[in-house]
Design a protein around this nucleic acid. Sequence first.
DNA 1: AATTATAGATTACAAGCGTAGTCTTAAGTT
DNA 2: AACTTAAGACTACGCTTGTAATCTATAATT
Lengths: 124, 124
Amino acid sequence: MIELSKAEFDVLDALWINYPATASQIIERLSDDKQWHEKTIKTLLGRLVKKGALTFEKDGRQYIYMPCIERADYTLKESQNFIERFFSGRIAPLVSGFAKSEQLSQQDINELKKVIDDWEKNQK
Amino acid sequence: MIELSKAEFDVLDALWINYPATASQIIERLSDDKQWHEKTIKTLLGRLVKKGALTFEKDGRQYIYMPCIERADYTLKESQNFIERFFSGRIAPLVSGFAKSEQLSQQDINELKKVIDDWEKNQK
DNA sequence: AATTATAGATTACAAGCGTAGTCTTAAGTT
DNA sequence: AACTTAAGACTACGCTTGTAATCTATAATT
């Protein structure tokens, strides 16, 4: 699997919002949350290309970037990894930890119920 | 919050199994899973002490190590962090991703139901 | 008491990461 | 056509991390 650093992920995440996109557009999107220099983001784009996480096409002297991987796929793999490391691969202890420390809202509970519901419907 | 690298976490995790413990005991515990040189583990122990994740008492020429943080606390914070980064702080999308990719077993579902159940009892 | 072994302290070193600055070249402007 | 931007390429640099090897001092052994 492609391994991304935090900063690399954040750049890719800005691309996932809407793509294809140019470097300037990505820089623009990131400017709200991060205080990153334009050069920093370009370095990260280069590293992402090198890692195979995104490609580009030339358009004049700009590049038009596109992700090579999907967000859902990436986050699923990271989630598996995370849960394996910290909870021996079981998901309930993670949720249980949140519950115990009062981190769950009624909305979270409703959403979780729906996930369970859908899962059960799918089993039939 | 104390930030631990993967390798550091693994060492601390071996201590959490049972503590206080000496370096040799920790090395012994890790020998099953990891091919780490004894020196490597000692380096990591030193870094953990420096980061404030564990302390020790002297006993002759050995150190007896003890964690300064609890596993549940650490994993909770890491979980929050993780869910914030990848799922905007909401837990259901993570579980939903697992469900969609057939990663959930009936046992997981039962455990999740129990967590929800307990949560609801607690609300009353 | 002298010697040896070993625990921890210190040092090492390459790769990855965050964070840019400088260089080069082609596109845009006059 | 000449000049100026600005996009991407290349270089930089200190910090962390993984992964030990060497140094030092003290406990154990002879």
